[in-house]
Amino acid sequence: MANNTAQLQEKSHPMEDLLRMDRMPHIWCSGCGLGSAVTAFVEGLKKAGVSYDKTAIVSGIGCTGRVAGYLRLDSYHTTHGRAIPFATGLKLANRDLTVVVFSGDGDLFAIGGNHLIHAARRNVDINVICVNNFIYGMTGGQNAPTTPLGAYSSTAPFGNYEMPFNLVGLAAASGASYVARWTTMHARRLTDSIATAANKKGFCFIEIVSPCPTVFARKNKGGTGLDMLKEFQTRAIIDHDADPTTIPLNMDNEIVCGEFVNDDRPTFWENVQAGIKARLEKFANWEEMQSNSRKISHKKDRKYTSSRDSSIMRRNT
């Protein structure tokens, strides 16, 4: 009897209430950091205590873009780079939802970079989780806006010539209410950050530095996924007081992690409400206004026709 119970328990996955088990196994490579990122997300949501029925997840395109497909939430796998404006529409049209964008560095900062800075500027009440693996994984290792200067990619065979974006710096400078960076090594702290963001209003941004053994490590002598985690462990430091605009990521510098921004700014919707209220107060009470609205004559003798006629034909026939 005891054995039977043990067997039954073994069969059920501990996260199956939030994962689409009928879609397993997933498509990610062994050693990829996305499994850890999803685990932290699921644990973070549990910890936050938000209603799963009221949580929606939106992804763009790429390896991380597939996250939405594996989570048993209202989940939207949209077009490349456009997860944030899609999520903005979803959130504003149903403000009871917790809306999370889960996507990669290429999706959110190259093709979707403009949307990210504008959503942060507006302080729309959504959470953006960006898994940064420094490269385009799904398409075969091309250069990303995060690829460190000098790193190799399949479109930078002589080493990358471009300066990379510092994601946390950009998000903070654009006006995000909450900005944090962790690596997939920091499972507990990442989980806590995800839980904090889930219950925080305003635009929250979390960067997850993640290993891509299949393309990034292979092109840059990074070894296996495990080797990369070990490297993260030696390079990472935690400094919550660091200025996020001064901590870019290179090939071998310190990976400064922490919760850099945690402010309370009015959200887009709060500003909308306040703005309308201030303007309308000049016109006294809104309800009163509606009842006193000027009557417009609707003459009964003129019948409503659904469309204008092309009278010329009528006249001539």
Partner: peptide
């Protein structure tokens, strides 16, 4: 993209 998101809401 935004009006598609709103539509799903």
């Amino acid at each position: 993209a935004g009006i598609l998101g709103a539509s799903w809401a």
